[in-house]
Design a binder for these strands. Structure first.
Length: 437
RNA sequence: CGGAGUGUAGCUCAGCCUGGUAGAGCACCGUCUUCGGGAGGCGGGGGCCGGAGGUUCAAAUCCUCUCACUCCGACCA
């Protein structure tokens, strides 16, 4: 993409409404604009990142035979009256009325909706277990939205739901999703630590939050040192096999968020204890027949008996992840995108807009990159070098190829790694091959 | 929802206390000089000073109400 033909409204100064680094950088990098408190528009660059994250999440869900559906944002109040949550849910739920005076709501979550679909469509135990998910915008009328997209009122969520015949089977579904999450976060370039979470009225050990570490994280956490060096990808995973050993591996060590911290356990860890701040980027839990019993999600068993299905729900905050990743990966100059979700893989800078030889070299490089299928953003604007450097660092593409008249004379370009800052002066062909390799 | 702030040019902000012609830097347009880490000169456009009411000869400035946004707390993916 040529920057001269793109829409990338970057800001030199920080809008005063943004306090935390990810919010500031998202506004400055031209990724989002605020519409009202906690509600944002996504501009091309921000949308591209959002889509990239969404796609990785989607692929990992599909990989465990979790099937994508799409449920509405607007739901009928009657559905929620059946589960009893229409009254239980507070003012966080945005209630609206249609022209016929029917009570509707903008969904803060979709358990009722998916349970109704299942209840109306599945009759036999042979069609269970089942995993379904969707990626949809939700709305929670938070009293105090903040931190940009990390704590907005409108946000994009991946929500999966499992349906099983009994608790043992539900545990298998839970474990599947647990391990799938580890893989998903790793692909996103994140180290996410699973932590035991409140299980609510159901109890038991089947509820975990996934947190990534970031200095500006919203909650204080403590965990065993081992988590820092643990690589999730060291495990050959057979999703149809027994996943319990893998889950155990990641849940045996101590890890807790503020409200669940245990001074005794922490004392015992001694030197191995580390404390940090974390951002919650996922939450999975098992909730039994809470919704299935109320909404009639019942199947006929092998003996002709009626079985109320056991359910679980598994969320990943997709839009929140955009902010969370920036919190975990940035420097004074701007964002540093992990390669897997970067809006473009490489930024190409033409330092001298008017110079014929320089521009020719840039155009050739741009054509070669495109031919090689490498996603490139080409800064061909008539701007000062300094402005281009600053913008390129700000938007955080993993690689930069900088071409100026000085290098062109000697047949070299500058190849820069955004994360490490390392620069090499190499030939255009070599630069191309680095990215191909 | 309690507490605290802020609303003046696209952005960052000064002016308000002590009422009297609405400002600066950046950005934008034109032009010249520049050209390897957010350049400089000259010229130019852009504002019902968040909104409503009040006090006054006169209100960005004082008073009342209201709306929006931000921060702290409680709550939360």
């Amino acid at each position: 993409m040529r920057l001269s033909a793109y829409f990338l409204p970057t800001l030199k100064e920080t809008p005063s409404e943004a306090q935390i680094v990810s919010h500031r950088l998202m506004l400055r990098a031209g990724m989002i604009r605020q519409s009202s408190a906690g509600i944002y528009s996504w501009l091309p660059m921000g949308l591209k990142v959002l889509r990239n994250i969404e796609q990785i999440v989607r692929e990992e869900q599909n990989a465990i035979n979790c099937h994508e559906v799409l449920m509405p944002t607007i739901q009928p109040a009657d559905l929620w009256r059946q589960s009893g949550r229409y009254d239980d849910y507070g003012p966080e739920m945005l209630r609206i009325r249609d022209r016929h005076d029917r009570d509707m709501l903008y969904g803060p979550t979709n358990e009722e909706q998916i349970t109704e679909i299942f209840a109306n469509s599945v009759r036999s135990y042979k069609d269970v277990p089942q995993l379904l998910y969707h990626i949809q915008w939700k709305f929670r009328d938070e009293v105090r939205p903040r931190f940009g997209v990390m704590r907005g009122r409108e946000f994009l969520m991946k929500d999966a739901y499992s349906f099983d015949l009994d608790k043992e089977s539900a545990r298998r579904s839970y474990n599947k999703m647990f391990v799938s999450y580890l893989k998903t976060y790793e692909r996103l370039g994140l180290k996410a630590i699973p932590m035991a979470a409140d299980t609510g009225p159901i109890g038991g050990d089947m509820s975990h939050e996934f947190l990534i570490l970031a200095e500006t994280g919203e909650s204080e956490i403590a965990c065993h040192r081992d988590f820092i060096d643990m690589s999730w990808s060291d495990y050959e995973v057979d999703f149809d096999g027994d996943l319990q050993p893998v889950v155990d591996k990641f849940t045996n060590q101590y890890a807790a968020t503020d409200e669940k911290r245990d001074p005794e356990a922490e004392k015992a860890l001694g030197e191995d204890l580390i404390t940090a701040r974390g951002i919650e980027v996922g939450h999975i839990f098992y909730f039994g027949d809470k919704y299935s019993s109320k909404l009639g999600a019942v199947v006929t068993g092998p003996e002709g008996e009626e079985i109320t299905v056991e359910m679980g729900s598994y969320g990943i905050g997709v839009s929140r992840l955009v902010g969370a990743i920036i919190e975990a990966s940035h420097d004074d100059n701007g964002i540093i995108w992990p390669e897997s979700i970067a809006p473009y893989r490489v930024g190409l800078i033409n330092l001298r807009h008017g110079d014929e030889a320089c521009t020719q070299t840039c155009d050739d490089m741009y054509a070669s990159l495109n031919e090689a299928g490498i996603d490139v953003l080409y800064d061909d604007r008539d701007k000062k070098a300094g402005a281009k450097f600053a913008d390129m660092d700000l938007i955080g593409l993993p690689w930069q190829i900088v071409i100026g008249p000085r290098g062109v004379k000697d047949g070299i370009v500058e190849f820069k790694n955004r994360k490490t800052g390392e620069r090499e002066e190499i030939s255009p062909v070599k630069a191309l091959n680095r990215l191909k390799g």
